[in-house]
Amino acid sequence: MVKSVMIVGVGGQGSLLASKLLGRLLTEEKYDVKVSEVHGMSQRGGSVVTYVKFGEKVYSPIVDLGEADYIVSFEKLEAARYAPYLKKGGRIIVNTQQIDPMPVITGAAQYPSDVLERLAAEGIEVDAVDALALAEKAGSAKTVNIVLMGRLARCFSIPPEKWLAAIEATVAPKFVEWNRSAFRLGYEA
């Protein structure tokens, strides 16, 4: 049985670190793991997608339409953009932050006001969390990614101590405390 997590967001939000953390944790849990990311052009404020898949044996590194058990979205609009990748009965964990893309900034398009409601109306389980506020409470706005990992951890049977150990092994030593509290705030919120 292979499980899939899709991490989506805006270039520069730290989704690569989140996938690195998840990859490390799942490897230590003795799963076969594949993590797929795209570098380059997409980093410049564009839409960014990372796939994490784990199970006894993982073949394809990518997550296709209708396959993700969980989508962790760092931004509201991106949650809506990738919702078709969610498996029936899957869950979207979404940071309620709004980051305007260039077509909205220039006035060529409108930022949809009701994306989360529309997703819920489609029967999708939406776990909305103000990760930015929690990250700031933890000590740094840059820990949004770890707040969301804390939220995701509630869906897994892996105990929080193991997540915290993986965080310690993944982030720079001077940021460990902020990230530990970010994880706890996400997990407990």
């Binding site: 404020g45 564009g46 919702a83 029936k88 909205v104 409108q110 997703l119």
Partner: peptide, 20 residues
């Protein structure tokens, strides 16, 4: 058979990469 999925919501603005 293909997997079932929720169709994309309409009228989502794109997010192209841009100069920082």
């Amino acid at each position: 058979p293909e997997k079932e999925y929720v169709p994309a919501l309409s009228e989502l603005p794109g997010r192209p990469p841009m100069m920082c």
